[in-house]
């Protein structure tokens, strides 16, 4: 019997552009040719640096432009470091897209609150592109961003551009700043209580460090949003992304295929415990 197609085999794709976003964060544009690489906002790919290894990286680009796949990577380890050192014209291995994305369709007719902590804005950006592309389908759109310091604000130019629009509310806060910062200081969860949205008709999408998501979700519940309407994007160790390696298990879910986006209702009891 012949071997069937191997879901663990990446395809080679050309790196078109690599640009530095922050001190340790780069955005990599990958050309995927005329066939495109359709994905849903919130999905991720496995990116492979030849001979080095593979890492799960969220897609941070516009789903309306599937010929260029955009990923934003923080250089934290061997593989992510190698990915950020890629040069235009070099090749990267690609498998995906994987996982369940943001509830773009569920949110039709509702207000949408996006809460991002640090690099968590990257997987939320495709959702924002999609929401803005079909702006008439939604009520208020609120984006709340937290960063460690003004220097760590991801996609700052784009945030400033979006903020000029009159049909989206954007608030940014930083954990700490020099005296020349005139913006908000404090954790991102403090912005939730001040934001204007219809608590009965809101879908919230939250991405950031797990502890930040836990507090953000709890603040959203305090603000009157149903736990069923709050979606979090979870992160776990991933080796295969196809539900076979077991590394990303979280309770009864494999984050790679049952997530990464799951409702707070589904996750809340597990999130409240350590080391699950």
């Amino acid at each position: 019997m012949a071997l069937a197609a191997d879901p663990m085999a990446p395809i080679a794709a050309r790196v078109a552009r690599v640009r530095r976003e922050l001190k340790d964060v780069w955005t990599i544009d990958i050309e995927v040719g005329s066939g495109g690489f359709p994905f849903a906002p919130g999905q991720f790919n496995m990116l492979y640096s030849f001979g080095v290894g593979e890492a799960a990286i969220s897609i941070s680009g516009d789903p309306a432009r599937p010929n260029t796949l955009v990923h934003t990577v923080r250089a934290v380890g061997k593989v992510s470091g190698a990915l950020t050192r890629l040069k235009p014209g070099e090749f990267v291995g690609l498998r995906g897209p994987f996982g369940a994305g943001w509830p773009i369709d569920v949110a039709v007719g509702s207000d949408v609150v996006l809460v991002a902590g640090g690099l968590g804005l990257a997987p939320l950006r495709p959702a924002l592109y999609r929401l803005l592309a079909t702006r008439e389908n939604y009520g208020r759109i609120v984006l709340l961003c937290g960063a460690r310091s003004p220097r760590d604000i991801l996609f700052r130019i784009e945030l400033e551009r979006w903020r000029r629009r009159l049909d989206i509310d954007i608030e940014v806060t930083v954990d700490h700043a020099a005296p020349d910062w005139r913006g908000n200081v404090g954790v991102v969860t403090t912005l939730i209580g001040r934001a204007a949205f219809d608590r009965h008709h809101t879908v919230a999408m939250v991405c950031g460090p797990e502890i930040m998501m836990r507090f953000a979700a709890s603040e959203l519940v305090n603000a009157g949003v149903s736990d069923e309407a709050i979606y979090l994007s979870m992160e776990r160790n991933m080796k295969c992304a196809i539900g076979h390696c077991g590394h990303c298990q979280f309770g009864g879910d494999f984050i790679c295929k049952d997530g990464p986006v799951l409702t707070y209702r589904h996750l809340r009891d597990r999130l409240a415990r350590s080391e699950i």
């Binding site: 030849f50 080095v52 593979e54 080796k239 295969c240 390696c245 590394h247």
Partner: peptide, 17 residues
């Protein structure tokens, strides 16, 4: 029990993986 780890390797020249 089915869990696995995935390991990538290359030769010294970096031409084969």
């Amino acid at each position: 029990c089915f869990c696995t780890s995935v390991e990538d390797a290359s030769d010294l020249s970096g031409e084969e993986a």
